[in-house]
């Protein structure tokens, strides 16, 4: 047992580098997220598709050695559409994870009025925001591009580097498309919470942002025949980007340029809201 002398001693030890201090926040954030068993179970379930992908890739590559199972999968081709499907499935799981984790990042500090306390530390406001965004970004990366690239590597190890050279677009698309989705989810989750001020209302607003504009956009596309209105539908926008990045024909009715602009606009608007709301003091004008 440590015996402590009850007196104050100034600190004269070493310090961490200023540009790495914000990394403290995702460490605490991840610990807080995985403290919930329900969340840990849900997150673990998110690896079902990558595991299935590993199995399918293995069976496909060893079809000739696996008898009847191999014969069933003989006609199945692992190409960019397979990886896009994988990413679409993982993106839906990532949305649920973002819905749970994203608003929880700043809600408690906002509700408790603890922002002045945290922002009085030498990490800077954007360091704090980056730290708070990093937690869901890391979790979502673990569900999207990291297992996606692992599958690509696995496929390459079984099929040879020629396959990778012929399909270089796949890892690039997996990485870029995943980050579009991750950026949207993280920024919108943080912005929703910053506006709503509490975890549960932040989640509600985050969910509504994905549903309400999408419904209005789809209704406008159907009623007025304006496909451009789908730009407010986040799933249609990201779906367009996925198809475009993977080199598949775009079937959503939106042009990739509009989709890129829409994603940038959503991210920009969210960043603006975060900038206005995540401040140590609220100035009443």
């Amino acid at each position: 047992m440590t015996i402590r002398e009850r007196r104050y001693v100034p600190w004269d030890g070493r310090w961490t580098r200023p540009w790495v201090r914000w990394l403290v926040l995702p460490r605490y954030g991840l610990r807080a997220a995985f403290r919930s068993r329900l969340f840990a179970s849900l997150y673990t379930m998110g690896f079902a598709a990558p595991l299935l992908g590993l199995l399918v890739i293995y069976v496909d590559a060893r079809a000739d050695q696996l008898g009847q199972i191999g014969a069933v999968l003989a006609g199945f081709e692992i190409d960019r559409r397979t990886f896009r499907l994988f990413l679409e499935v993982q993106s839906r799981i990532a949305f649920v994870v973002g819905l749970i984790v994203g608003p929880a990042m700043v809600a408690d500090e906002l509700a408790a009025g603890a922002l002045p306390l945290v922002l009085a530390r030498p990490i800077g406001r954007w360091g704090y925001i980056a730290g708070k965004l990093a937690t869901p970004a890391l979790l979502l990366s673990g569900l999207t591009w990291i297992p996606g690239l692992a599958l690509v590597l696995f496929k390459t190890s079984l099929s040879g580097s020629a396959w990778l050279l012929a399909n270089l677009r796949i890892p690039a698309a997996l990485f870029a498309a995943s980050w579009c989705w991750i950026a949207l989810i993280c920024l919108l989750a943080l912005a929703s919470t910053a506006v709503a001020g509490s975890k549960s209302w932040g989640r509600g607003l985050f969910f509504a942002l994905f549903v309400a504009p999408a419904a209005a956009g789809r209704a406008a596309a159907t009623i007025a025949g304006l496909d451009g209105a789908l730009a407010v539908d986040l799933s249609a926008t990201v779906g367009t980007l996925y198809q475009w990045l993977f080199g598949d024909p775009v079937t959503t009715g939106l042009s990739p340029a509009v989709a890129v602009l829409a994603v940038l606009a959503w991210c920009g608007a969210a960043a603006l809201v975060i900038d206005r709301r995540i401040r140590p003091v609220r100035i009443v004008r």
Binding site: A212, A215, A216, A219, A220, I223, A224, G225, L226, A229
Partner: peptide, 15 residues
């Protein structure tokens, strides 16, 4: 106001 959007657009751009 969101449900109004498609009808406003339809009134302006609809056939």
């Amino acid at each position: 106001a969101l449900p109004l959007v498609p009808w406003v657009l339809a009134a302006i751009y609809g056939t």
